[in-house]
Design a protein around this nucleic acid. Structure first.
Length: 587
RNA sequence: GGGGUGGUAGUUCAAUUGGUUAGAGCACCUGCCUGUCACGCAGGAAGUUGCGGGUUCGAGUCCCGUUCAUCCCGCCA
């Protein structure tokens, strides 16, 4: 067997005259009769190797039958290319390898798609042959970014005294939050393990154990519906610290994020990331994960509405609702048809009742609902909101949550349409002071916004009994370019406060004991104040690789229906396996 | 659970209002070619139009159902 002396990405004219050997895949073939050029590829690059009938007729004959993606090893001499044949776009473009010996390791069938071009097949087809898609330059680059990021994280955390502790993958099911993936127990028939949604309880127990700086790069599992940035199994950078407040965590996580971007992309992020509290984020951007690479903030419109004759909005205000609006440039391009499309978008997806608009023309407001606004009100709007000629103003009036959500989505849509987003920009920010709980009207109860171990803001503890909706938590999210890439909180570390939190969430003592008794019990034996954060490692890798699909940074991802098209999982199992587990399939 | 988009040779796409034998690039096969790098030239093979039903003289095209992929809403403590 020919073993390689070099990779396919490194030979240059300094190697001319050397006898070398290479191993790799045939990326491209150009046959000229007695002379045949082959681009040999491995993950380091490509090198052009030449088969010459006159020089090595035996080898030439063997090479005649070579096809795309055959795997070969060759031995030969590095030679200078004729000057007119130099390919300046390749590192190895000044040399050829004159092949004198060849091993054909494996001949490939006709390829299902062209691995030189990732776009040569649809995604479902590429997923079926994911091992081939992973040969593409794009995915090799992405996997390398991911590897470097994981390496940089471990290095950074270790240097800062954090230790990585592995926690169980088979754990107790807790029906709170996301749906669990379940694993039936053979030895305890009828009982189930769950795969962790996150190692949350374990890392809190590790704090009680005294591992005051813990981290783990760890797989987590959530059985919900999937999106471009969500997979059933995903990887978190899980971190927890003792004897800290939320600003210690924020500082640590900012430092880690800056380090990753510096190491992998050589990007210098701001020393401190901007911070917005939740309420401000919603009021200004209509989102708890705002993309602040562009402005176009949401404006308060109630004073203009009150001074107007537009009764639809006035009655919204009377009923305690809100009216907000955004000012968008390039209003001429918003024809009736386009506005109707945007209106449907608002109605169908965000429950808005409509989308009001007015345009600014010749220094005056025009069209849409402009006639309901007296001239002096219009003038105020023009000057307060800095509306320019050609702008269009969109307004929505509704319950505050609808206004926030709909306008937040509209802001993003308009930002894209108007090309306001600078793709070269990195805009991290912290969102803090989240509400502790939100009302779940379906279940008629309060749900934890983050999770049930999140500490309430110390200033708001008295409100827990009287006004739960306005209790802030010591929770925080790290947002980058409109993606939530991390989130965490200071945890409750006292048994009585944890009990209070459970009772607010409608978790009975018995239930709390059954589900979280082991944690509650641990609080009896010396629990330090602690808190932490978990980063979505896949999302970070995705953003760093310039993608908006998490699948692009996962070697073997699942589809949006949680299937693996490559190995066809999930799949049926033998009756024998079911019997061993004491399970039967419901018909 | 709901909505949008898509599924046609191995693959990427085309196919006029429903109308002849469903076409083209790449890949594949055969032959030619000694400086190509998207090599070139000549020829060839390749199709259950996702699946099931319906309308029609006639369906890739229209209708209903279903399935898969993808994007979004719900969901994701």
């Amino acid at each position: 067997m020919i073993k390689r002396s070099h990779t396919c990405g490194e030979l240059t004219k300094t190697n001319i005259g050397e006898t070398i050997s290479l191993c790799g895949w045939i990326s491209k073939r150009r046959d000229h009769g007695g002379l045949s050029f082959v681009d040999l590829r491995d993950r380091y690059g490509k090198t052009q190797i030449v088969f010459n009938e006159e020089l090595h007729s035996n080898v030439f004959k063997k090479a005649k039958k070579l096809g795309l993606e055959d795997v070969i090893g060759i031995k030969g001499v590095v030679v200078q290319r004729p000057s007119e044949a130099v390919n300046e776009s390749m590192i190895t473009g000044e040399i050829d390898v004159e092949v004198s010996q060849i091993d054909i390791f494996n001949e490939a069938d006709a390829m299902p798609f062209d691995v030189n071009d990732r776009n040569s097949a649809n995604e479902d087809h590429r997923l079926k042959f994911r091992f081939l898609e992973l040969r593409t330059k794009d995915l090799q680059k992405n996997m390398f970014i991911r590897h470097k990021a994981a390496f940089a994280i471990r290095d950074h955390m270790s240097k800062n005294d954090f230790i990585e502790v592995e926690t169980p993958v088979l754990m107790k099911s807790t029906p709170e939050g996301a749906r669990d993936f379940l694993v039936p127990s053979r030895l305890h028939q009828g009982k189930f393990y769950a795969l962790p949604q996150s190692p949350q309880t374990y890392k809190q127990l590790l704090m009680i154990s005294g591992f005051d700086k813990y981290f783990q790069i760890v797989k987590c599992f959530r059985d919900e519906d999937f999106r471009a940035d969500r997979q059933p199994e995903f990887t978190q950078i899980d971190i927890e610290m003792s004897f800290v407040d939320q600003y210690d965590i924020i500082n640590m996580a900012t430092g880690l994020t800056r380090n990753i971007f510096k190491e992998i992309l050589d990007v210098e992020l701001a020393k401190d990331f901007p911070q917005l509290n939740y309420h401000e984020a919603m009021e200004r951007y209509g989102s708890d994960k705002p993309d602040i690479r562009f402005d176009m903030e949401l404006n308060e419109m109630s004073s203009y509405v009150e001074a107007s004759n537009f009764n639809a909005f006035k009655s919204v205000l009377e009923k305690g609702g809100r009216v907000k609006g955004i000012v968008c440039p390039n209003g001429e391009s918003y024809s009736r048809k386009v506005i109707d499309e945007l209106t449907d978008f608002m109605k169908i997806y965000y429950g808005a009742k409509g989308l009001a608009w007015l345009k600014c023309k010749d220094g005056k407001l025009d069209g849409g609902i402009s006639k309901f606004f007296p001239e002096h009100v219009q003038n105020l709007m023009l000057s307060d909101l800095k509306i320019n000629n050609g702008d269009i103003i969109f307004m929505i009036g509704d319950d505050v949550s609808v206004v926030w959500q709909a306008l937040g989505a509209l802001r993003l849509e308009l930002g894209k349409r108007e090309n306001l987003i600078d793709n070269s920009k990195w805009a991290p920010l912290w969102v803090v002071d989240f509400p502790l709980v939100e009302w779940n009207s379906d279940e008629q109860r309060w749900d934890a916004l983050h999770h049930p171990f999140t500490a309430p803001h110390p200033d708001d503890i008295d409100l827990i009994d009287t006004d739960p909706a306005n209790v802030r938590s010591l929770g925080y999210d790290l947002v980058l370019n409109g993606y939530e890439i991390g989130g965490g909180s200071i945890r409750i570390h006292k048994r009585d406060l944890q009990q209070k939190a459970f009772s607010l969430l409608g978790v009975s003592d018995e239930e709390a004991e059954e589900k979280f008794g082991f944690l509650m019990n641990a609080f009896r034996y010396g629990a330090p104040p602690h808190g932490g954060i978990a980063f979505g490692f896949d999302r970070i890798a995705m953003l760093m690789s310039g993608s908006n699909q998490i699948r692009d940074v996962i070697a073997f991802p699942k589809t949006t229906s949680a299937m693996s098209l490559m190995d066809n999982s999930p799949s049926n199992i033998d009756k024998k396996q079911l019997d061993e587990l004491g399970l039967s399939i419901k018909k």
